[in-house]
Write a protein that binds this DNA or RNA. Sequence first.
DNA 1: TCAACAGTTTAGAATAATTATAATGTATAA
DNA 2: TTATACATTATAATTATTCTAAACTGTTGA
Lengths: 142, 142
Amino acid sequence: MSKKNEFIDKLRSSGLRPTKQRLKICELLFDRDNTFHFTINDLAKNISEMLNEKISLATVYNTVHAFKYKGYLKEISINSDKSYFDTNTTNHHHFFDEDTNELIDCDEKIIETPKIKRNISGKKINSVEVLVKVATDNQNQK
Amino acid sequence: MSKKNEFIDKLRSSGLRPTKQRLKICELLFDRDNTFHFTINDLAKNISEMLNEKISLATVYNTVHAFKYKGYLKEISINSDKSYFDTNTTNHHHFFDEDTNELIDCDEKIIETPKIKRNISGKKINSVEVLVKVATDNQNQK
DNA sequence: TCAACAGTTTAGAATAATTATAATGTATAA
DNA sequence: TTATACATTATAATTATTCTAAACTGTTGA
C-alpha cells in the first residue's frame, strides 16, 4: 500500500475525511523511520513551513486528538504547561531531561515495567508508565 | 514544638516570612493526619472559606511553589489542564482513575519502584515515578 | 453536470491556568 | 520605633486550549 493510502486509511478509521491539511499532518507524523515527540505548537509550525501557508491550530488540535483517541498517538504529561504527544504507541517509558526539557523514549530493556501487585477493585488497567526525571548533577530539581 | 512553630520553621527554611496568609496555607496543608492531593484552585478556595476572606491566587502560587522547590510538596502531572500537588513527599506512585479524575497514592508494597538499568550519561536521577491509569472495564481509555 | 448537504477549515473570540506588575501593606532588624 | 525589605493584592498579561460562526470543499444523487 502506498504511503498516501495508508494515511487515508488512518484518517478514515479515525472518523476523519482525508483533506490536504490532514494529509500533511500524517506525512509529518507517520512518514518517518523513527518515532518522535512533539507539541501541538511545534507541529503546527512545521506544517506551516512545509505548506508555505498557515494551518489553523484548531485543525491540528482536532486531528491530533482524533488520532490519540484512535490510538495512533499517545499523550504524555510531564509538566502542566503543555502536552507532549508521542508517535510511539507501544508500551514504553521516558526519561525527561529537566535541563533541556527533552523527552527521551526508553523501552523495557532499560526500564522494566513495574508489577502492579494490587489493583483498584472493579477497574481495568489502561496503562502503566514510568517517568524518570534527570538533570545535571550540580543542579537542584526543577 | 508547637504546630505553629513547625509552620514558621517550614516557611523560614523555604525562604519565606511567616505571614497570616502563609500560616493559613500551612495549617491546611500540614496540620493533618493524612497526606492528600490538591490543585491550587482547591487550596485557594478552602483558604478563603476558612479565613472568611479572599486570599490572592498569586500568594497561593508563590507559597506552594516555594514549598515545592524546598521539597515540602511534590507536583504531579496527570493531564495537561492543571497541576496536582501532593503533601506526601516520600517515594511513592499513583493510580489515576480516569472515570472520576481521582488520584490515589500507593507505595512500593503495591507498585515496586522499577530499576533503571542504564541512565543518561552525566545526569543524576531526580525522581522515578509510576503512573497507572485505570477505568471501569467497559469504557475506553480517555 | 450540478445542486445540496455534510463535514472542514479558518480567524478570531472565549476560557482557564498561570505569571507578571505595580501600588499598598506588614514583618523584622537595628 | 522606624526604615527597609519583603508580602499581598487586584488586575493585567500570557499561554495553552477550546469554541464559534462563517466561508469553503468533497461527495452524492438527480
